[in-house]
Structures are given as C-alpha cells and as structure tokens.
Write a protein that binds this DNA or RNA. Sequence first.
DNA 1: ATGTGACTTAAAGTCCGTT
DNA 2: GAACGGACTTTAAGTCACA
Lengths: 78, 78
Amino acid sequence: MEDETGIIDVVAVAVRRARKGLGLSQEDLALEAGLDRTYVSQVERGTRNCTIIVLARLARALKTTPDRLLVPHKRSRG
Amino acid sequence: MEDETGIIDVVAVAVRRARKGLGLSQEDLALEAGLDRTYVSQVERGTRNCTIIVLARLARALKTTPDRLLVPHKRSRG
DNA sequence: ATGTGACTTAAAGTCCGTT
DNA sequence: GAACGGACTTTAAGTCACA
C-alpha cells in the first residue's frame, strides 16, 4: 500500500486550486465539507490518503465532481 | 462521514464493469492490484469506503485511470 | 469463482493548541 | 489564514473461515 502515491498529490493540487478559485479559506472549505480544518490542510499538503467519501464531500463543497479532483492538472494535458 | 455514500456505488459499478470488460475474475484483479480477493469482492458490492490509493491500484490493474472509476455510469449521460 | 461477517492493526479523521 | 504537533476516537486495510 505504498506505491500509487502520486494520486495523493493530484488531489492535493486539485483541492487547493479549486478552493482558491472559489476564494475560500481552508476553514471555510472544512466547514462546507463537514471536515476538520486541520484535515483539509493536510489533504492540500499531500499528507493524507483520503477516502472516496471524503473526496465526494470535498467535491461538493468545491462545486465540482469527485472525478475532477483526481485528474492531474497538467497545463499541456490535452 | 455518513452521507455521500452514492460514490461508493459508483465505484462498485465501475470496477465490476471494467473487470468484466477485461474478462478477469475478482481473483485475477486482486492479484493484479495487490489486494485480497475478498476485498475486491467487497468493493464491487459497495460495502467498502476505499481510499484513493486503493482506487489508484484498482485503476491501474483495470487499465484505466482513477478518475474514470468515479464517473457514474449512466447510459444517457453523455 | 463469489459473498459475507468477524476479526486485528494500521491509518483515517477530530480536537486542542502553538507557531 | 495556514503549517504543524500530539493525543485521541473511529474506520479502512487486509485477511480468514465458511457458505
């Protein structure tokens, strides 16, 4: 259960981007998603392997869909 | 952490569909993904709230991407 | 070849505080 | 506002016996 860790960073970046795009603080997002503020911080820093339910909650709070939070954000991804 | 459970079923359906599409047994998939056979069974039955790392491992074994396993499979959806 | 509940042990997720 | 530490509770990971 140690590999495939790239996905963690994908989510981290996606969440942070989406949150900032909405002009929310981590605390705002945590409140919206029903999560702890420190947990959101950890997700954005790529130190948490969150579950799909948490992903769905974050997605909802961020006005997006769960699958979008798993798409690597590469500028030239096409 | 109780709501948003819909995502669980989305993954369940997506995994089972992808697996059958490849003509694999649950045991085959489990082996490929480095998971237990019964664990795969539980994911497909929607009784597990798996983490994104597990999702990534399943995705790789299923020759797909993690985000695709989170897309609801509605035939009249897109 | 799959479903299922029970189980142990890691880790998810919370709460409080400090920098 | 956010990174970080640590102690804490709950749940996922991983596996088994049996159907």
